[in-house]
């Protein structure tokens, strides 16, 4: 697997990580090395195997439909760097 700069920029964009131009090449070669590690997956014989997403075949546990959480907005908003009038604030978004 080889990666070019455009691919690195695309992934970084999907992950919302700013990458400076002068970091791009070292990041690219780093990632490429890690991706080479994954070539090993192709060598495993996984014919007829179902993917395993959860370690045990346990069913999902559900909760009853009961309201147990009450207003803690003051506490939550105090953790935010920017809030006003009960809202979290972000730079203006245009739809």
């Amino acid at each position: 697997m080889s990666l070019d700069h455009a691919a690195v920029r695309h992934i970084a964009r999907l992950a919302r990580l700013a990458v400076a131009d002068d970091q791009l090449e070292s990041l690219r070669s780093d990632l490429e090395r890690v991706l080479h590690l994954f070539d090993d997956l192709a060598a495993a014989n996984v014919d007829n195997l179902a993917p395993l997403a959860h370690p045990h075949d346990q069913p999902l546990s559900l909760r009853e439909d009961v309201v147990v959480d009450t207003d803690r907005s003051a506490q939550l908003l105090a953790l935010a760097a920017a809030s006003q009038g009960g809202y979290y604030l972000v730079p203006k978004v245009i739809e």
């Binding site: 907005s73 009960g86 809202y87």
Partner: peptide, 27 residues
């Protein structure tokens, strides 16, 4: 039309003050 949210115990009632029906899970 459930009383609580899909994945948390916060109320789904409409029209509350902002973020007053926001649980730890919801935020």
């Amino acid at each position: 039309s459930t009383a609580s949210k899909l994945f948390s115990g916060a109320s789904t009632a409409y029209g509350a003050e902002p973020n007053t029906q926001t649980s730890l899970v919801d935020c």
